[in-house]
């Protein structure tokens, strides 16, 4: 299943990537190969087999509704490139 340039551009936009024309063609070929490989599964007879949502047959790992200590503010903001008023300061998201 060959991807088009438009497909690649759409995926790049969703990932917020800016690609050169050369990169677009390279990823078009690579992603097509990935999809073709995944497509091998379609050759198997999978009728009646429920989709696997989780690799380990395990259910209902639940916790009680108990409050546990949160991070000290200093640690919470430690990785923030910039901060202001105890908050993460980021570049404007409203274009």
């Amino acid at each position: 299943m060959a991807l088009t340039h438009t497909d690649v551009e759409h995926i790049a936009h969703l990932a917020r990537l800016e690609l050169t024309a050369v990169e677009k063609e390279m990823y078009r070929q690579q992603l097509t190969a990935v999809l073709d490989y995944a497509n091998l599964l379609n050759e198997l007879a999978l009728d009646g087999i429920p989709p696997t949502a989780h690799a380990i047959p395990q259910y209902n790992v639940l916790r009680d509704d108990v409050i546990e200590p949160s991070l000290p503010l200093e640690d919470a903001l430690y990785n923030a490139p910039r901060q202001q008023n105890q908050q993460f300061l980021i570049q404007s998201v409203l274009a």
């Binding site: 202001q84 908050q87 980021i90 998201v93 409203l94």
Partner: peptide
Amino acid sequence: HLEGGGSLVD
């Protein structure tokens, strides 16, 4: 959203 640009996240 801050008036002069930039946003704060809580």
